[in-house]
Simulated scan of single mutants.
Amino acid sequence: MQVDELSEIYKTYADEVKRFLICLTSNVDLAEELTQETFYQAVKSIGRYNGKCKMSVWLCQIAKHTFYNYLKKEKRDDYSSVEYMMQIGLDIRSTVDLPDVEVARRDTLISIHKEIHLLNEPYREIFLLRIFMDLSFKEIGEIFDKSENWARVTYYRAKLKLAERIDLNEL
Rank of each mutant, 00 (worst) to 15 (best):
E125I: 10
W58D: 01
A42Q: 07
T108H: 12
V43K: 11
Y13E: 02
Q41F: 02
R76V: 08
K75R: 10
P99G: 06
E32N: 14
N149L: 15
A104D: 13
L34K: 04
L90M: 14
L34F: 08
F144N: 03
V101N: 03
V101F: 03
D167S: 15
E164C: 14
S7C: 15
V43E: 10
V153T: 12
C23S: 12
K73H: 04
K54V: 02
S45E: 07
V57I: 11
T108P: 05
D91T: 09
S111R: 06
L162K: 07
M85I: 14
I116Q: 05
K114P: 05
T12E: 14
T38Y: 10
R76T: 07
E125L: 14
L160H: 13
L135R: 05
G89F: 11
I143T: 05
L71G: 04
Q41G: 06
V153C: 13
D100Q: 09
V82S: 04
A63Y: 00
Y84F: 08
R93P: 08
T108N: 11
A158G: 01
D78I: 06
V57S: 11
F132N: 07
L30T: 09
E170L: 15
D107M: 09
E102R: 15
K73F: 03
D100R: 03
M85C: 06
D97G: 12
K146E: 09
D77L: 02
L119H: 00
T154R: 03
S7V: 14
E125F: 08
L71W: 09
K146F: 01
T35W: 10
E33M: 13
Q41R: 09
K64T: 01
P99I: 09
E170F: 14
L129P: 01
A104T: 15
V57N: 05
C53R: 01
V3S: 13
W150A: 13
R165A: 12
R165G: 04
R105D: 04
Y10N: 00
T38F: 02
A42L: 07
Y49A: 06
A163M: 08
W58T: 10
L109M: 15
E74P: 11
E142K: 11
D77K: 13
H117Q: 04
M1N: 05
I22L: 10
L128C: 11
I62Y: 01
A158N: 07
I116H: 10
N27G: 07
T38V: 10
Q87I: 08
R152A: 08
N69D: 03
R106M: 13
D167M: 15
F127S: 01
G47H: 00
